[in-house]
Design a binder for these strands. Structure first.
Lengths: 219, 219
DNA sequence: GCATGGCCGTCAGCTTGCCGTCAGGTTGGC
DNA sequence: GCCAACCTGACGGCAAGCTGACGGCCATGC
């Protein structure tokens, strides 16, 4: 599950992020509403954790604009404002839940689980790239409408390209992504996996730049 | 919407009842768990408001028995216990929301509205999936017309897949769904439950993607 | 209190298929 | 033409996953 955390507190932010990561979720942390807007435009999230007092505006307005656009992503408000009127305003603006600081991290996990269960079944965003339709959340790829099975390593590699479209990625960078700093090199693992990806997704999907690295092909 | 209020406080009880009635809902008010059990056996409610401290037992046990029987009626807990551990226990037992006394009646209305919206518009849908007919609300499965008995854990797991058909679910995600916040699961519980589900519902019902997770099989 | 039965977590032994490695072929730059 | 970089088919090791068995725990019944 992808979660966007909008929180400017430099203590609470990382704490929440680590707690949720520990639950096996993937978290993006931003500290400003404009960054949050960019993030939500760029990727689809399953849940938003929203602080109400932020350096560039009130979270309530952000939430209202979100709902005004028809976005139904679940939102849990997370703030120091413990006034009942604020809770009501938050719920009325379209929040799904409300937690008052200081936040108990285990309770937060519970609430996230509850919201996740409640909203299960929303359609995931599909990224199209040439003949490929990719659902990052569901981890499915369709090539010309037919499903393609990718293995764990193949997904990790493919994701590295998808999240940086058009960018050149060196073998060292890719090794870092796939193996999280195991300092051993000495084999052509990346080449092999690129080859396997091309076989499954089409030869044009990744282009080689000799001596430099690889790049996601243009559709 | 029919609401069952289980509350022994002779001040708060009528106050809540009047508030909800004022919102246009229909309320039955009982003060004991045995009366609550009778009421729920006699009629179907759309929502239960549950006090935790009652003359004939703790509400948590009532909620657990309810969920243990497969009842999925939304439950909002309403109690003076403001300990975080109690909230967690409540949410873990299957509550949908939690309000701490003293309750602000307008906030209660907002929460009821939220739960009502959340559950609106799906009267007993039967999902067909291959040889299976599933009634999510009643928690029944028929395989080739014959009823199949699932245990609580099996339902929780199966539901996780059903509510996100086609989605890949990692073991960490599934553990989060089944165990909410028991911090360490150091064994292959998920694998075992998947195996038990496959035995009951057919081997194709859940497919394994090695190193990634599980997915509901295509019918 | 004791027995019974169902559910669930743990474990051990087995099966499966992913992935790292390698070798031989191919490509591209000079 | 030469060499380095890259591609890809093949293969075996081993970690991930499967499942039968067992025991603890909690209800329920007598």
């Amino acid at each position: 599950m992808r979660i966007l955390l909008i929180e400017d507190d430099t203590v609470l932010g990382p704490a929440v992020r680590d707690q949720i990561t520990g639950d096996g979720q993937s978290v993006d942390w931003v500290t400003r509403l404009d960054a949050a807007g960019d993030a939500m435009a760029a990727a689809a999230y399953d849940l938003v954790l929203l602080d109400l007092m932020l350096p560039d505006g009130r979270g309530i307005g952000f939430l209202k604009r979100l709902r005004g656009r028809g976005d139904v992503t679940p939102v849990i408000i997370l703030t120091a404002l413990d006034q009942v009127s604020d809770r009501i305003e938050g719920l009325n603006a379209g929040a799904d839940d409300y937690l008052v600081k200081p936040v108990d991290l285990d309770e937060l996990s519970a609430r996230i689980g509850s919201v996740a269960r409640r909203y299960a079944g929303n359609p995931n965003p599909i990224v199209s790239h040439g003949a490929l339709d990719i659902d990052l959340a569901a981890r499915t790829v369709h090539r010309d409408g037919r499903p393609v099975q990718l293995t764990a390593r193949e997904w990790a590699l493919f994701e590295a390209f998808l999240t940086r479209p058009g960018q050149l990625l060196s073998k060292a960078q890719l090794e870092g992504k796939l193996y999280a700093f195991e300092d051993d090199i000495g084999s052509n693992t990346i080449e092999v996996h690129v080859s396997r990806l091309r076989k499954k997704l089409g030869p044009e999907i990744i282009t080689t730049e000799r001596g430099l690295g690889y790049r996601l092909g243009t559709p």
